[in-house]
């Protein structure tokens, strides 16, 4: 475990905590895309199936449980908690997210490292995670007033992806056999999707203004 990887995981954890704080404490999910959250729940459910078959470390298992538990509870909160559900921007959150799932599944069936059930699902989860943020980014663009917590949530998620790229660069140079093209390319695509958001986030921070994305 290197410092970039740990920082990436902690940033990911922080993003989830920020979102849970908003939903649990403020009882609001305004500006949060349920579509993206559903995709993340699928991502973690398909990637972490190896919880039953392989053991890496206590850290690894605990973090997997945290991400599984938090992603599913966020979805359930947004769908079934009366107060939280009322704050959901249903009319704005219209991205056809199921249309992302099938192409990712087909791609995983075609391009993978090993053709086994767990491996194909694991690869599918990488492809799906790469595009899972799209409904959220579209919703942000449609939302006039992006509150601080929602902005921070997306900023932290993007930061987590960026740190993972540094982690791969570090591992490539320190672990001679560490070459994983599928992970790298889907991770890179995922990080690039945040580029636009990062630009406007840094602008609003620099000018000390409220975050607003151009339509």
């Amino acid at each position: 475990m290197n410092i970039f990887r740990l920082a990436g995981d902690m940033t990911h954890l922080a993003s989830v905590l920020v979102l849970l704080l908003k939903i649990h404490t403020i009882k609001s999910c305004a500006g949060v895309s349920l579509k993206t959250q559903e995709l993340y729940a699928i991502v973690f459910a398909t990637r972490y199936l190896d919880i039953f078959t392989s053991f890496y470390s206590i850290y690894n298992t605990l973090m997997k449980l945290v991400f599984l538990g938090s992603s599913f509870s966020i979805v359930l909160y947004m769908k079934y908690h009366k107060t939280v559900h009322r704050s959901y921007d249903r009319e704005q959150d219209t991205f056809r997210h199921w249309f992302l799932v099938l192409p990712c599944l087909l791609l995983a069936l075609l391009i993978h490292e090993k053709f086994t059930f767990l491996e194909v699902l694991w690869t599918f989860s990488l492809y799906l995670e790469a595009v899972a943020i799209l409904p959220q980014l579209v919703l942000l663009q449609r939302t006039r007033n992006i509150d601080n917590l929602t902005g921070q949530y997306v900023f932290l998620l993007g930061g987590y992806r960026g740190l993972y790229i540094l982690n791969w660069i570090y591992r490539y140079f320190t672990e001679p056999h560490f070459v994983h093209w599928i992970t790298w390319i889907s991770g890179l695509v995922q990080t690039l999707l945040y580029a636009d958001f990062f630009f406007y986030y840094s602008q609003s921070w620099k000018n000390n203004k409220k975050l607003q994305l151009p339509a």
Partner: peptide, 10 residues
């Protein structure tokens, strides 16, 4: 080397 080294990532 472990084939699944990347799987220790989250």
């Amino acid at each position: 080397p472990n084939d699944d080294d990347v799987k220790d990532e989250l």
